[in-house]
Deep mutational scan, measured.
Amino acid sequence: MATDAALRRLLRLHRTEIAVAVDSAFPLLHALADHDVVPEDKFQETLHLKEKEGCPQAFHALLSWLLTQDSTAILDFWRVLFKDYNLERYGRLQPILDSFPKDVDLSQPRKGRKPPAVPKALVPPPRLPTKRKASEEARAAAPAALTPRGTASPGSQLKAKPPKKPESSAEQQRLPLGNGIQTMSASVQRAVAMSSGDVPGARGAVEGILIQQVFESGGSKKCIQVGGEFYTPSKFEDSGSGKNKARSSSGPKPLVRAKGAQGAAPGGGEARLGQQGSVPAPLALPSDPQLHQKNEDECAVCRDGGELICCDGCPRAFHLACLSPPLREIPSGTWRCSSCLQATVQEVQPRAEEPRPQEPPVETPLPPGLRSAGEEVRGPPGEPLAGMDTTLVYKHLPAPPSAAPLPGLDSSALHPLLCVGPEGQQNLAPGARCGVCGDGTDVLRCTHCAAAFHWRCHFPAGTSRPGTGLRCRSCSGDVTPAPVEGVLAPSPARLAPGPAKDDTASHEPALH
């Protein structure tokens, strides 16, 4: 009773807030009518008042009428009001819900409408889902798969039609296919003929059939049928067999079959498995989609049935006599038709004709302190090069084509190399640097090759510096006499390219 009084008091307290929050009759008014909170006449009256005075006034009048009803109607109103779709449509209802007392429970059932309790003993237990329907569909599909699609060729003596089998029958139906081979029951999904010589313990000319048996419980189990008994694959494991010639990621696949039913060829011909030897223990289905393919039931050349050999690369099948050149017997292992072999060759040939990528240039590290003349020119003028003790990398590039010797140069053309002071002394051009340390401070000019250098860098042994005729380390061993002091540049003949010694390969005349 306390809860009923509290709900009535809360409705009177929030009546105006609810009326202002509800700006549309749908969905709240319609939901109240659906849950029998508002009768039909009051529903029509509220809609009429909404058209006349507006939605807030109409709902305020409806809530005032609701306060005169019993506690069950008020409880049902609060339940409908706080439904998710009403809270989404009328956003101003959320503060009312947040301020609702926590001790007021809106989930209690309506009085007088409590459903009768059902004894637990009368409640049926839930049924577990079964796979009976899938099993029945598999039974119905198996006879259809064994139905012949056409008439065999005159040369083929193997013609068999499976008798119709009602689904209610649980007995196995067997077809006489000759040579002791028996087909599987209607619940078998796949059958492959297997030679009895590969099964340990088999006697006589009995041949087993590799099947997948579907049981009534819905589970499946792969086994071997020899005669009327089934054997699990673990009985046929043979770890010492060295003649297993397995197909790549293979499961067994029928390579020879008669049109209309699988079996042995007439005249004692023995149908073979995809792999010879003992049956392997793992009978998992292969991951290669080509091995799941269903080959055609007629020859791809003459479009006739009979004894066919199936290609492992495509769905086509052929007569042995229709092949070019014809085959006398079934080859062992994987067999592919000429079209598949030709496609494989065409895929391999473009790969062989692809040009080989060019090898990157060989990189040879230079000892610290040495650099090529090109690196000396590329440096920024007026700045010493940083990191001189790091190992430089010199790339061996292809030799350029031989060019004509340089033409003779006048001494005026070499004027930018040297600057003559007032006393006739050779001065260095701006930006000249030593080729060893890279520093341009207090550098000297070689009178023979006009290269800038430090005496301490080229002659670290402490050799005394002569007063005139300074030469760098590369030119100090040259027998050519030094030019007379005061000459602007060496003779043009000295600039012609010539053979250089091994220790002077990195010091070429550089223009500054």
Rank of each mutant, 00 (worst) to 15 (best):
A5M: 09
A6H: 05
L7N: 00
R9K: 00
R9H: 02
T16F: 01
E17S: 01
V20Q: 00
A21S: 02
A21P: 02
V22Y: 01
V22P: 01
V22F: 01
D23L: 00
A25N: 00
F26Q: 00
L28H: 00
H30S: 02
D34V: 02
D34A: 01
D34E: 00
H35G: 02
V37I: 03
V38N: 00
E40I: 02
K42V: 07
K42W: 01
F43Y: 02
E45C: 00
L49P: 01
K50T: 04
E51T: 01
K52C: 00
E53L: 12
E53K: 15
G54Y: 06
C55V: 05
P56T: 05
F59T: 02
W65I: 00
L67R: 00
T68M: 10
T68C: 07
D70N: 10
T72V: 13
T72I: 02
I74S: 01
I74R: 01
F77I: 02
F77W: 00
W78L: 02
W78V: 01
V80N: 00
F82M: 00
N86D: 00
L87R: 12
Y90K: 00
L93P: 02
L93N: 04
P95A: 12
D98M: 15
S99K: 15
F100Y: 01
D103Q: 04
D105V: 05
S107I: 10
Q108N: 05
Q108F: 05
P109Q: 07
K111M: 00
G112L: 14
A121S: 13
P125E: 08
P125V: 13
P126C: 03
L128W: 14
L128D: 01
L128N: 10
T130F: 15
K133T: 03
E136L: 06
A140C: 05
A141Y: 15
A145E: 02
T147G: 07
P148W: 02
G150L: 14
G150D: 00
A152R: 09
A152N: 04
G155V: 05
S156L: 15
L158E: 10
K161S: 04
K164D: 00
K165Y: 08
K165V: 09
P166M: 14
E167A: 08
E167I: 13
S168R: 14
A170N: 13
E171M: 15
L177W: 15
L177C: 06
G180K: 10
I181T: 03
T183D: 04
S185W: 05
A186D: 11
A186V: 01
S187C: 09
V188W: 05
M194K: 05
G197I: 11
D198Y: 10
D198H: 08
G201Y: 12
R203Y: 05
A205G: 07
E207Y: 02
G208P: 03
Q212I: 00
Q213T: 09
F215T: 01
E216W: 04
K221H: 06
K221E: 11
K221S: 04
K222T: 02
K222A: 09
C223Y: 05
G227A: 04
F230Q: 06
S234D: 01
S234M: 12
E237Q: 10
E237V: 12
D238F: 10
G240Q: 02
S241A: 05
G242E: 02
G242Y: 15
G242R: 05
A246S: 07
R247D: 03
S249T: 03
P254M: 07
P254F: 03
L255R: 04
R257V: 03
K259Y: 14
A261I: 05
Q262W: 13
G263M: 09
G263D: 14
A265W: 05
P266F: 14
G269C: 08
E270F: 09
E270I: 05
A271V: 11
R272H: 04
L273Q: 15
